[in-house]
Computed example of a mutant assay.
Amino acid sequence: MRRLNKLSTLLMKKPIKVTLVSIFVIIILFIGAKNIQMATGNETLINTDTTVYKDNEKLEEEFGGESIIVMYEGQNLLNLTNLHHMKGLENQLQTMDEIYSIFSPVTVVEQLSKRQFEQYKKGITEMSAALKNNQHINTMLAHSDILKPGLPENKKTLNDLLYDNNGKLRDLFSEVITDDEHLMMIIKFQGGIEDSSKSEIVSQIKTYLADHELKATKTFVSGKPVLDDAIRSSMQDSMKKMMLLSIFFMIIILSLTFKVSWRLLPLGMILIAIFGTIGLMGWLKIPITMVSMAVFPILIGLGIDYAIQLQNRYTEEMKEEDSLEQ
């Protein structure tokens, strides 16, 4: 009670200074709103001090974190066009520090090609040493993609790498080729990557697939990071809709039922409180989660109630003071 009396006394004695300080604090809080982030990671579900969470962090540091799956769907997928399409995406992602590993049919083909290249190179070196004139061998080495590591440019060379002598697909491709109509690229993140970085990489992958669309093959992106990114976008859209609908209905209710001057003033007060809360969360690095979103409807409901009561009480006191003066 004494604190309330001191606060009321301060407001009465120094109203301008208190108003200026309040405006300054509100501006600072509003600036913090730009730092707010949506979070859907494991830290929103389990305490970061628990043994389970720490063990999972160590596991991700050693073996990588979550994975994005880029799926290719269609007929006759194991062709040079699709593999070079994958290689282009792989080249773009390999420059990023957030990527732990990339595994795809391209990875397997390049491993086989490199192994084959080393075997042929060794054999040719031994054979050329026994021949006086190795001009034809050098020409073959320069022009045959069988003797070059990496993705081949010739379909027959590719088929030799994909299939064994019996025409069966090599077992090395079993992890990335699920059936005749689906093959995938597995992109694994480093451990402890922030949600914002994951969302940026997901966006870049989707942009690449949109800019390099394949005619006979469908592509789509999946995996937990993609789902989390969609959840964060949905949370943002839901918050915007909630705020707009709340403001709309409060304007209607206040206009029809609150018969005083400045009847929309409580709405302004509650908006300041909401944005101030979001700004404070931004400064304190507290992310908005699916749980913390429940605070805002409560804040709106209680805030508008108290603001109406305060304004109504102030109006009554002003009327009583006017009647006493008369």
Rank of each mutant, 00 (worst) to 15 (best):
K6F: 15
K6M: 11
K6W: 13
S8H: 13
S8W: 15
T9R: 15
T9D: 11
L10N: 12
L10F: 10
L10Y: 13
L11V: 05
L11A: 05
M12V: 11
K13R: 15
K13F: 13
K14L: 09
I16L: 13
I16K: 12
V18K: 01
V18Q: 07
T19H: 00
L20T: 06
L20H: 04
V21F: 04
S22D: 02
S22L: 05
S22T: 13
I23L: 15
V25L: 13
I26W: 12
I27H: 03
I27A: 06
I27S: 05
I28H: 04
L29V: 01
F30S: 09
F30C: 09
I31M: 10
A33R: 06
K34P: 08
N35R: 13
Q37R: 11
Q37T: 12
M38W: 10
M38F: 15
A39F: 14
L45I: 13
L45S: 13
N47T: 05
T48G: 00
D49L: 05
D49H: 14
T50F: 02
T51W: 05
Y53G: 03
K54A: 01
D55S: 08
N56G: 10
E57R: 04
L59F: 04
E61D: 09
E62C: 00
E62D: 08
G64T: 02
S67D: 04
S67F: 03
I68V: 09
I69Q: 10
V70K: 02
V70F: 03
M71F: 11
Y72G: 05
Y72S: 01
E73P: 00
E73A: 06
G74K: 01
G74S: 02
G74E: 05
L78M: 15
L78G: 04
